[in-house]
């Protein structure tokens, strides 16, 4: 899923300053799972914003809407009537959601309520970790299902740097060394020979370095 976290209320309240009536748009998918921008978080944030503005004696009218996903146009059509006369939309979607909402509701400012962090997994209750950078050319078959691009701080392709210590990355003892994970996994699978291959430089065109990307599945394109 796409993992995000909510911006501080103080930051959000600043850029809502000139509005008196807004819609907070939750998103029912990834950010609901990572507890950043689901309906529950949207309702809580809406209350916090109302209280802050009451303290300033400038009440803010806040309506909460929850499309199933902000990244699919059909779900945005569903909420169009609810947005109605709101002056602005605070999107609790990921960066894609915010931008798609802005495309759909052209006449209104759409503002971000979250900081989008990464593609990851729920590691534990309330803990999410990064697993994929969407580099566009997966090599997990060679590395025991552990991604060196994402999980090595230097995206090394040919083993760990000298900073791997007791299985941890030198930049932060809270981060596992990606190459230790790869090694452990390949060893357990009896596939250590994979590590002897000198992996050539990656073609980064498949990644962000090739410019904004597009995927087309020809057979379903109308």
């Amino acid at each position: 899923m796409i993992v995000a976290e909510q911006k501080p209320v103080e930051e959000i309240i600043r850029y809502l300053d000139k509005f008196n009536k807004i819609a907070v748009a939750a998103c029912g998918t990834c950010v609901t799972v990572c507890m950043a921008g689901g309906e529950k978080e949207a309702l809580t944030l809406a209350s916090a914003l109302r209280i802050k503005r009451l303290e300033q004696e400038r009440p803010l009218e806040v309506k909460v809407v929850t499309p199933k996903r902000q990244c699919d146009i059909e779900f945005l059509d569903d909420i169009a009537h609810e947005i109605g006369d709101c002056e602005a939309i605070l999107s609790l979607g990921c960066g894609a959601g915010v931008q798609f909402m802005a495309e759909k509701f052209k006449e209104k400012p759409v503002l971000p309520g979250l900081n989008t962090k990464f593609m990851g997994v729920t590691r534990d209750v309330g803990i999410w970790t990064e697993m994929c950078q969407g580099c566009g050319d997966c090599i997990l078959e060679k590395t025991g299902g552990v991604c060196p691009v994402t999980r090595c701080s230097k995206s090394n392709f040919n083993g760990p740097c000298g900073g791997s210590s007791n299985g941890k990355c030198e930049i932060n003892p809270g981060i596992d060394c990606g190459w230790q994970l790869i090694y452990d996994r390949l060893k357990a699978l009896g596939m250590l020979e994979n590590l002897y291959e000198i992996m050539p430089p990656k073609d980064w065109r498949s990644s962000r370095d090739g410019g904004p990307r597009k995927v087309e599945k020809k057979e379903v394109v109308l």
Binding site: S155, C161, I171, I198, M199, P201, K202
Partner: peptide, 26 residues
């Protein structure tokens, strides 16, 4: 490979790591 920029005096910087040290040797 180079020490990670988080240790230095510009920890805000973007790193590159387009190629790794073995690819550089090669």
């Amino acid at each position: 490979s180079g020490d990670h920029q988080s240790f230095g005096n510009h920890p805000e910087s973007k790193n590159v790591y387009d190629i790794d040290s073995i690819q550089l040797i090669n």
